[in-house]
Design a protein around this nucleic acid. Structure first.
Lengths: 136, 136
DNA sequence: TTATTAAAAGAGAATAATTATCTTTGCAGA
DNA sequence: TCTGCAAAGATAATTATTCTCTTTTAATAA
């Protein structure tokens, strides 16, 4: 987990209580929160925060690589504070999305693409979207 | 490529000129069109078509597995007429998205997951989101 | 072929999510 | 502590999408 205070400074961004709180809300929310989830969480600490500020701060954090957007088929955007290379497990029945890290798999796939190139395309990164069901 | 006329009948859906035209527009558009792209395309044939109809038909086609939504980080939804298992190449610099089929890779990854299960999760499907750059 | 009917299309209002604009506030360096 | 610029706040505007209601039409059977 990164120090948001330090990270903002390094990017030349002002450290404001809102930015810190919004970042922490995304971390705390777990399970890739929507903006609505984030607003709900942050309102506990900042009851008066403006919705526009939340959107603006999220965009600033995403465009400075301090947060990621999660790719999905749904209308509402979801956010992820985990920056390390990882994959996602999507539940078919609910909106649950879990992070999935697997170095062995990463190595396997990277080796495959090193051997077999995709024509007309230079790969920078890859990510698995795994759909299925969570079991108890 | 499926016969949309036959496919609609099989699903017990009425075959209407709009549905056929919208389906064909998605196929013709290539590169995973947005609703806007689809509307632009279809307006050539159907200048009077209602925007609401396009949305409604797309939802019907998606929920009957005749089209797929493309997962993305962007606000606007994009559609795909290719139903076969495949992956996507995302251009880092533009909005271009290309289909990528690779049976060998599918087998490799499937074999990996057969051997190494993810705990508490039953995999139904997986899909690679490959980001990078298209080269001439 | 025509009549019937349920489903789909059309039109436009409504909603939801997000962005933009403008003013006020406050962080950070001098 | 002071000052300037970046960020927050408030709210309007925009965009994408859905909903509601009416009209039309495809599909079935007489």
């Amino acid at each position: 987990m990164i120090s948001i205070h330090k990270a903002l400074k390094e990017k030349g961004l002002k450290v404001t209580p809102q930015r810190v709180a919004i970042y922490k809300a995304v971390v705390d929310c777990k399970n890739h929160p929507t903006v609505e989830n984030i607003i709900d969480t942050i309102k506990m600490e900042y009851p008066s925060i403006s919705v526009g500020t939340v959107y603006k701060v999220l965009n600033v954090l995403v465009s400075n690589d301090l947060l990621r957007k999660v790719e999905s088929e749904k209308e509402v955007m979801r956010y992820d504070a985990v920056l390390e290379h990882h994959h996602h497990l999507f539940c078919m029945d609910t909106d649950r999305i879990e992070d999935y890290e697997d170095k062995e798999l990463d190595i396997l796939v990277a080796a495959y693409f090193k051997k077999k190139e995709i024509k007309n395309f230079k790969i920078e990164n890859f990510k698995l979207h795994i759909t299925g069901k969570f079991i108890k």
